[in-house]
């Protein structure tokens, strides 16, 4: 009995805090989503695209930020989800957006497992090169199987039914936007659970010292493969959202550029934090949209300058640096 009391007093503190942070995170996403809807009602397509890319960046954060696997091929998972959802609708007439999303999740997870099996055989630079090789192979596969994917013309003929048979995907993108917000919220809550779970703790250990994890009797590669599958499911959700909302899938979804941009967004926001991934996506894509409209000739220069500034002066990323600043004085727990 005394022991139980001790346990309570010693070890009860951190629990309430993380739950509050979950609620706060959900609230922040909801507020941003509402603000976006109210402030930019004519630009919902862009906002929905931000949501789908945010899912890709979250997925990337799982393997890169939480597990320390650097990859430049993560769009392979995103694109697989997009093509799966698109092909279900365009070729099989499965137009229920929930089923299409499920298809994207499954395809993303399978692609994730495939990438993991190949990439986890190497470490460091060779691993990075493998990830690049993989994204090119995925891209080429989609390009060559044009009877299924539409090749370089893109996959069209995607016609999602109304959500729950009630909310039609309208021309203004209202339904797509709310559908995307719902997917992001669900993914966010589930991922908060995962990163805090025993498995999340195991992955943090692997990032720091895989050999030490082996000495605990756990297999780093098995855990990383599992994380890749989870990451694939999240990225696949993003891909499916992109296919459903734009009703086309282009080869870009499976491109090296998309992968590299996702990594840039993650670094910009801050690795190893779900909020960082979301902040990075939002800032990068809004900045890109705003600057490319304001100065179409030099916008890439400005994006480059922003990135250099962040990496040099805020190496933990914009969110990471801000979070470190606000929680600095003597707080032991995140």
């Amino acid at each position: 009995m005394t022991l139980a009391v001790n346990t309570q007093t010693i070890l009860s503190r951190p629990r309430g805090r993380s739950f509050r942070r979950d609620l706060m995170g959900v609230a922040v996403i909801a507020v941003f989503a509402a603000a976006g809807y109210i402030l930019f009602p004519d630009n919902l397509a862009l906002l929905t695209r931000i949501l789908s890319v945010a899912l890709l960046v979250l997925a990337l954060d799982l393997v890169t930020g939480y597990c320390g696997v650097a990859t430049l091929g993560h769009a392979a998972l995103f694109g697989s989800g997009a093509y799966a959802a698109g092909i279900l609708s365009a070729h099989y007439g499965i137009n229920d957006p929930l089923l299409m999303t499920l298809g994207g999740i499954v395809a993303g997870a399978v692609a994730g497992l495939l990438c993991a099996v190949i990439m986890l055989r190497a470490h460091g630079l060779p691993q990075l090169v493998l990830s690049i090789a993989l994204i090119y192979l995925f891209h080429e596969l989609a390009n060559k199987t044009s009877s299924w994917t539409g090749g370089s013309d893109g996959l069209s003929g995607i016609m999602p039914d109304p959500v729950f048979g009630l909310y039609e995907f309208d021309l203004f993108g209202h339904t797509a936007y709310f559908f995307g917000v719902a997917l992001l919220l669900i993914a966010f809550v589930l991922l908060r659970l995962v990163v805090r779970s025993p498995f999340g703790m195991l992955c943090r250990g692997i990032k720091e010292d895989p050999l030490r994890i082996r000495a605990l009797g756990a297999s780093p590669n098995a855990a990383l493969a599992k994380m890749y599958v989870i990451s694939g499911a999240v990225a696949g959700t993003g891909g499916a959202l992109s296919a459903i909302s734009t009703q086309v899938v282009a080869l870009d979804a499976l491109s090296f550029t998309q992968s590299a941009e996702a990594l840039v967004m993650l670094v910009l926001g801050g690795t190893g934090s779900l909020f960082g991934a979301l902040a990075g996506t939002l800032i990068f894509m809004l900045f890109e949209d705003y600057v490319s409209a304001a100065n179409p000739f030099h916008w890439l220069t400005m994006v480059g300058a922003l990135l250099i500034a962040v990496v040099l002066f805020a190496p933990k990323g914009i969110y990471g640096t801000a979070a470190a600043y606000f929680t600095r004085p003597g707080k032991a727990n995140r």
Binding site: R15, L193, R196, S197, P198, F199, M201, L202, G205, G217
Partner: peptide, 18 residues
Amino acid sequence: LAVLQRDGRAGRLFGSFL
């Protein structure tokens, strides 16, 4: 983490050991 790993539960995706 060591206790969970020993019991084969370090792969659990939900809940906190706390």
